[in-house]
Design a protein around this nucleic acid. Structure first.
Lengths: 336, 336
DNA sequence: TACGGTCTTGAAACCGGTTACATAGGGGCG
DNA sequence: CGCCCCTATGTAACCGGTTTCAAGACCGTA
């Protein structure tokens, strides 16, 4: 691996000049610049990132924190992969790389310690937090330390923190409007955990539209799940016990919607003839499961891209961008 | 951020001694060691990873290469997330971190250049390649350069390369055996692209069992898809045109199986009564789609863990571990 | 008492960059 | 002509570690 000194020597210039060629090319003469660049290409010189990080304290790496919820070992972000692709792509366009930094939940507090240290030791420029559940103390510590943070699907603000989410409230509205359009009058909902922000927002939007239409939502028609399939199943059974039975259900997450559909199937009811279902997220399964789940889609790529942009903005300027809420869209399939 | 010199000064020892406390503790006296450790904890000293990398040329980071198939922009590894979790967890238990290094396919050759440089510049210790499709030239260059590589689901060997896969052939056997057990006589199959290794293996195993049972597989009963849903749909329609119609189909990938089921549904046929289906992979949807897809499950966590182990072995010793094939298991659900 | 060996420790070079500061050369202007 | 400023480059300190080599302390032994 050729070093900057070797390159400098071969070109008959000083190392400082070589360094300048790569960092502040405008201050070096056209002639010298070309000479250095040609020679660099010839011997395959590449600046060593560790040395550069050491000298500048900037690593061009952003940490990716995810899966910090140890209460749920099997926790899966519903569209991690889509976000990852978009995030990675947008960041690498800026010369930034992604270092995965999940605090090892199996290792408990020790794992969290390691995680925090990893962030500091590697001079990570910032972190992206992808998690819609708990707030990890280690992550909060990062924010306190002034590390630029961009959270996804998680309300997270501070002097150096911002977040990107979908317009959950608007999404809730879309769902309600669609069901009303379809002529449903007895509409129930399966929400997410009441203490989570997306769940609260989706419910609020949903409720608002119903209210506008002159229909209030009976408390017994709102049952909370935990985003996972089984909870949707349970919730739906509870709703089926209502009398009169709802003719439509808005499930605030697709997995719960699928669970609900399963409960309906078991009860011998048909979707959408007997009960209509609208989900939220637009996960892969939504398109695959018959009769197709009508759902409020989140802009997964947009979320990843917006997160990258926010991160870049924080890294370049000193401003902390305002939180972004990306529009959601209703995807009409067969279930409503 | 406190440096090693500060810590050394506070302890009244030399920086060399401090360094030894963290790297070769056995050579420093019990007393000094304790003093340094206590003081380090007190002032929150953490060795700087960049400086260490610079000095030792080991970064404790392994690169993760994935999504290198630009022929398919939407390429999704069927269980990236599961593998990622296992891989990350096993690696971080060894103090290794994961740096995402997808060659940016949208950037074409330039992106690939950047990628290669990233690997070198960051002194990545090794690379995990997760991709069951094409072989990226940039990745091959890495292998040539002697970078330790572990490939997943991809036959990839060399002096510093090994790979981890499922026992695809055995899985094909399981599928065939199950269908024969169920009394099926007219069995067809939807394979993956014939030029891919997993597809060939699965088919080989499948064929072998049929042959053992005295049944040969008519060429017209073997139709190839491209792993994706639509191709399963198309393939199934082709198979339905056969006379007599097969009573069972082994789809070498779950997505294709789902596509096949959809085609059956459209044709007014029922699963498993009219036609039985067995898939391969056990992706999330398999459990969700009615009546439940009977499938050959890959050990996703095992794959991630095995990959991590192989990587660690290469990093520590000088040996390149033999390729590993993880056992598959048949998950019986409702489709067969 | 002198000597060799073992155990600890320190001094200093080195890894490969960046950057503050100094300097040399050239041009414009009074 | 002398002065000043500007541009292009070099010198050397520095980032925060690791590691080689040498040396001091202490021990047992001849």
């Amino acid at each position: 691996m050729s070093s900057i000194r070797e390159l400098a020597h071969r070109c008959g210039v000083s190392v400082a000049t070589v360094s300048r060629v790569f960092n502040t090319p405008e201050v070096v003469s056209q002639q010298t610049r070309q000479l250095v660049l040609d020679m660099a290409a010839e011997i395959g010189y590449l600046p060593n990132e560790s040395a550069r990080t050491l000298a500048t304290k900037k690593s061009n790496m952003v940490g990716l924190v995810w899966d910090t919820d140890h209460r749920r070992p099997g926790w899966r972000h519903p569209f991690l992969q889509d976000i990852l692709v978009a995030l990675k792509s947008a960041l690498s366009a800026q010369g930034l790389h992604l270092l995965m930094l999940a605090p090892d939940q199996s290792a408990g507090p020790a794992g969290r310690q390691r995680f925090l240290r990893a962030v500091q030791r590697h001079n990570v420029d910032g972190v992206v937090i992808i998690d819609n559940g708990s707030r990890d103390p280690a992550v909060l510590a990062l924010a306190d330390a002034g590390v630029p943070c961009v959270a996804l699907d998680l309300r997270f603000t501070g002097p150096t923190c911002t977040y990107v989410t979908s317009d959950n409230r608007g999404g809730g509205r879309l769902a309600a409007a669609h069901l009303i359009d379809r002529g449903h009058r007895r509409i129930a909902t399966i929400t997410g955990p009441p203490d989570t922000w997306p769940a609260a927002e989706r419910l609020a939007g949903f409720r608002a539209v119903l209210a506008d239409a002159g229909r209030s939502l009976d408390d017994a028609d709102v049952v909370a799940g935990d985003w996972y399939l089984d909870s949707g199943h349970t919730a739906m059974r509870r709703l089926l016990a209502r009398d009169p039975r709802p003719t439509a259900v808005f499930a605030a997450g697709d997995e719960m919607a699928v669970g609900a559909m399963r409960a309906l199937h078991e009860a011998g009811l048909r979707v959408p003839e007997d009960i209509a279902i609208v989900g939220f997220d637009d996960i892969e399964v939504a398109a695959l499961i018959p009769p197709g789940l009508t759902t409020v889609a989140q802009d997964k790529t947009g979320i990843g891209t917006a997160a990258a942009e926010a991160m870049v903005a924080m890294l370049q300027g000193t401003v902390t961008p305002e939180p972004t809420a990306l529009p959601t869209t209703l995807i009409v399939r067969g279930s409503a």
